[in-house]
Design a protein around this nucleic acid. Structure first.
Lengths: 339, 339
DNA sequence: ACGACAGCTGATAACGTTTTCCCCATCTGA
DNA sequence: TCAGATGGGGAAAACGTTATCAGCTGTCGT
């Protein structure tokens, strides 16, 4: 057995020598070209097996210009929505014979955005999918160089700028959730928003639109991080207010933190306060009370984003953006107001 | 503005022409070699800026032999443990100037394993990190070709085979959790295991060892999937048994499903039955009752795995495996048995 | 009988980098 | 003054693959 140091991976020329054919012939066999005698093909395949040959991806993609790596640029990876979207992208890519790489954009700062882009484009990348759930993603989408296939996946209600996008219509969903609470008889609905949400958050826009259409007062937005502990902190404050009967939270984690805080203060959900979340994480159906929330199909989002990117790579720069509507899932955490 | 079709990305030669220097000089400037006059360097940098030049990663890695892509091979991505480990790998890789790609191994079947490996190695990969939390990962680790830098990240208590590994000592943790319940006075502890767990599961091994050391009876293992609904199904059955006072679950999702089922049947946790989970997902601290569980630092696991892989890539094939111990976190779901 | 053409194969030329090699200055020390 | 070192830079080779081209068989249609 050769020492690991002296090991050199076999290359096409080695295979050609072993099979006693020319290098281009080996290439033809491996790429399934016709016009090659069955007997030679056989010899080549045997040589490949015997040597354990694997094509050098770098050389291959350099010469052919074909790239089989798609990059995902995202502000995070482990959060539920990000992870599921990534899963959708990976599955679709794998079925198409491509691989996905992932680069986290630490923040929306120019510096971090540029660093992430440089890192990503140092690979032979066929195209980029930007997860535009937060400021980091939005800024990254803007800073990508021209001429590179890019699509956006996110929660807008329409295509962002000139880049094709796969979207989940959060605005409609936010409106639907808020309408539902108003319909139950609540005078108005409070809202805990995520950190980067401003004018650009579909969830918040939908909430505002629903209140506006119903002529309901628009309470001050409460701003939180995406995690449960910041929902908990708002819960502590809300327990002290007495004009809050319904809260629409920007995601499930916030909602769960909020519910726990309310419960710790002796308030009942939904008896005293109704709560709606966003995302429909698997666990929220098991909570007590189970959480009314908005189901987002993140995996489908990832799949659509990859499909769109494929089109763009194939030259269809004007591929049509797609939008799907999330579903309100009514469970136990919402009820008509007391009295 | 050029039509997108006719666009050709600038290459080193274009930069050289614009800066009126030779191609190697540009390369030297970009790779930070000394021995180049400041004035030329300046001109080169300006040309790079002006043309928006980006090095062709494929060509670069082909010629230099340096690779900056590390692949993660895993049986899943969105589950908490996988996602967090992946996050750890990505962060460490990014700090080291590398990118991570991810390929899911759909199952432990030879066919799926081979497909995943082929896909991964079609990229210019510097090395592979196998997430060995399940059968798919274990089989993948075995099937990788020789000569390729590989490390394993998983939950064993010692290095698997000849491959360096970053581990979390699940065995010790499982023993600790079980010991704790015995210490509270439970006669024995039941166990709901994950799907692929058999002799190779550290969690289950630790549980068995603790029972053995205490001379406690060893109940039949209950086998579940990793998700909450299968925990729920076991909960329905356990509610009908009357010799169960404590259950050690292979992960938090199972534990949460179990608790909900018990609660739906009118049983109290921890009054009637104590429950311990595994992982310490963020939400379980908010549950009512909050879950006693074992905290695993998955992110650190990912970081260590990457560090180990770096060593292997740099030629240290015998890099030392590392093992960390998870922490038992006592919360509200455990108590002494009734009576 | 002869050109056209399909089937098959090997030389050879790319692809865009980095590396190696060599040359030319200029500077140093004896 | 000259050998050697040192800083600086270009020409050319090399990396492993795929694309292009040309050549060689036969076979077929006319």
């Amino acid at each position: 057995m050769a020492s690991p140091k002296s090991y050199r991976a076999p290359v096409l020329a080695d295979v050609a020598r072993a099979a006693e054919v020319s290098v281009p012939t080996v290439s033809r066999v491996l790429n399934g070209s016709k016009y090659v005698a069955p007997e030679l093909a056989q010899r080549v395949h045997e040589a490949v097996q015997a040597l354990g040959y694997r094509p050098n991806g770098a050389a291959r993609s350099m010469r052919s210009g074909r790239r089989t790596l798609v990059s995902v640029l995202a502000g995070a990876t482990a959060n539920y929505g990000y992870a599921r979207t990534l899963q959708g992208v990976e599955t679709a890519a794998r079925r198409a014979g491509m691989t996905v790489s992932i680069t986290v954009v630490e923040s929306g700062d120019d510096e971090h955005v540029r660093a992430a882009i440089d890192l990503t484009l140092a690979q032979p990348t066929a195209g980029v999918i930007v997860l535009e759930f937060d400021r980091a993603g939005i800024n990254a989408a803007k800073a990508l160089p021209e001429g590179l296939p890019v699509v956006v996946a996110g929660g807008g209600s329409r295509r962002t700028g000139t880049v094709p996008a796969a979207l989940i219509d959060e605005r409609t969903a936010g409106r639907q959730a808020t309408d539902y609470l108003l319909h139950l008889g609540h005078r108005t609905v409070h809202h805990i928003a995520g950190p980067t949400e401003g004018k650009h958050s579909g969830r918040t826009d939908g909430w505002r639109a629903a209140l506006g259409a119903a002529g309901a007062p628009v309470p001050q937005i409460m701003r939180a991080d995406w995690d449960a502990s910041s929902g908990y902190r708002w819960g502590e404050r809300i327990a002290g207010m007495n004009d809050v009967t319904a809260v629409f939270c920007a995601n499930d984690d916030i909602a769960l933190g909020l519910m726990r805080a309310l419960s710790d203060r002796g308030l009942d959900v939904p008896g005293d306060i109704s709560v709606i979340g966003f995302d429909d994480q698997p666990l929220v159906a098991l909570w007590q009370p189970s959480l009314t929330t908005v189901d987002q199909d993140f995996e489908d989002l990832g799949t659509r984003a990859f499909g769109l990117l494929s089109q763009v790579i194939d030259g269809d720069g004007d591929a049509a953006s797609s939008v799907t509507a999330p579903q309100l899932v009514v469970r136990e955490s919402t009820a008509p107001p007391k009295g």
